[in-house]
Computed example of a mutant assay.
Amino acid sequence: MNNAIQLKAKGISAEEARIRIVIRDKCSFHLLKPMVEAYLFGDVTALRLVGVPIGVNPHLVHQSDVEEFETNDPKWLPICHKENAIQQNNHNKTWWLHERHPKAYLDYLLPKDYSETTHGSQALSGLNWPQVPKCQRDIPIFGSLFEDVANWFNIPNPISSATHPDFYPARTVNRNNLLLRNM
């Protein structure tokens, strides 16, 4: 039984079945870790484009891999501890660590409120992606996206980064049998 017939048997319209098949066969699925703002911390020029003043330098636990974003900024940690307590007490988020929230830390570093559409888009458009991974094993989740796009267009990958096995399989995997090209 082909996929369209299986989907129709589940009560899915022919058009939706067609769209699902196209997405399954032609789309790629990628995530960011923890969020797009983390990658800005890999390029000081991008931070300046966001509006972080010259002389204000982020304090990061992991100086290299921004996908492991966490700050140890002594001036900001008291704010983080208060937010952590609020999240744990009021929302039962025992896993919450505010010091791992790059958007909140970025907002703290800016002299004005951070705006994704204004500040974020300016910084992302100017982000020097090849500079973000400081060594081969950095940013494997985003590295998977770059590898997938480079593979799709048959061009060299512009960044030298590892790929994540959950988001980009080894080259030995037959991509014709994948639900999504990179999974």
Rank of each mutant, 00 (worst) to 15 (best):
G42A: 06
P130F: 02
F41A: 07
N3Q: 12
T71P: 01
P34M: 03
V50L: 14
K134G: 05
H62M: 07
F29W: 01
T45E: 15
L145W: 06
N174P: 02
D25G: 04
H91Y: 11
G11Q: 10
K10M: 12
K93F: 00
V132I: 04
W95P: 01
K33M: 12
P102M: 03
V149W: 05
F142S: 08
H91T: 07
E15H: 15
P34E: 03
S115T: 07
V44R: 15
T163Y: 06
F41G: 12
N154C: 06
D73A: 05
L40S: 00
D25V: 02
T71C: 09
K93Q: 05
L145M: 13
I139N: 10
R175E: 12
A162V: 03
V36G: 08
A123R: 04
W129N: 07
K75F: 08
W152E: 06
P74M: 06
P53F: 00
Y39E: 01
A170W: 01
N2T: 10
E70V: 01
L110F: 02
L60K: 02
I155R: 11
D73G: 11
P102D: 00
S160R: 09
L124P: 00
A38W: 00
N157P: 06
L97K: 13
R24K: 11
P111T: 12
H101K: 08
I159K: 10
N92R: 04
K93S: 01
L77M: 15
N177K: 14
L109S: 03
W129S: 09
A9Y: 11
Q131N: 12
Q131V: 11
K10R: 15
L32F: 11
L60I: 03
V44G: 05
L106N: 04
P111C: 04
T94G: 13
I79K: 02
N84C: 00
K103D: 00
E116P: 07
H98L: 06
H98G: 04
C80T: 03
